[in-house]
Amino acid sequence: MEILVCIKTAPDTSENEININRDGTDIERDDLVYSVNEWDNYAVEEAIRIRDRVGGSVTVVTVGDEEAEEVVRREMAMGADKGVLLSDEVFNSSDGRGIASIIKAEIQKGKYDLILTGAQADDGAGQVGGMLAAMLNRPYASLVTCLEVIDDKKIKVGREIEGGNLEMIEINLPCVLSIQTGINEPRYVGIRGIRRTASVEIPVYGAEDLGLSSESVGESGSKVKRLDYFVPDPGEGAEMLEGSADEIIEKLIELLKAREGIK
């Protein structure tokens, strides 16, 4: 099976506090630790497992600047066979639809049976997979947490819906799926693995290579634009307990007892 996984570089939010820069135009990026978007990592792991079961190859593709090459190498170290970077100044500030059009152009150069994305990334939009499927006229299923290959024409997947219930569906290949966390346990990528892929040549394609006009992507092609970043007014918010650890604990126990929080 030929599998393509769309991946994105994202700040690791479990490692970083996200702060806003002084004029609210962006988040403070200087000290951020970047990695592959959490959801995408599960998607790549799933792709590798499918390939190991039924054969074929796994390609990872990302839209980004030169630094985005890092996540491509990381996922190749994990076991993806090929990596592609789609990079061009005119791609900057693309909205979800713009990103989907760029990836679509790359997809049409190949012949993929299965296209995977993460269910969402750092912006919480969860849009590229569904858009891609609609652009390519292929069936789509989001939030997939289990997957079984039936034959080379169809697969069976479970979508995790409200309450953690599983919606089981059969879906024809070629198709697009968005992968939800928990579908597998992504393997650890050691420094050695990353070193192994450090010198692999990663092809880079720009708008011209992909046959994209600069008006269709980037800022000019975007219908949705971000104006600023801000921290919402905390409103009422919590009563913050302050003082020494002992004082805080004493106060907290008092409050909990008053609320029958300690039986």
């Binding site: 639809r97 939009a125 858009m131 989001s142 939030l143 995790e160 968005s178």
Partner: peptide, 23 residues
């Protein structure tokens, strides 16, 4: 923006050729 909306909406925006504002 629930599990059904996430399945439906992005593709719908493409089919309608309309803007998509998620979540």
């Amino acid at each position: 923006h629930d599990t059904f909306g996430m399945d439906l909406a992005p593709g719908l925006s493409i089919k309608l050729d309309a803007a998509y504002l998620p979540d």
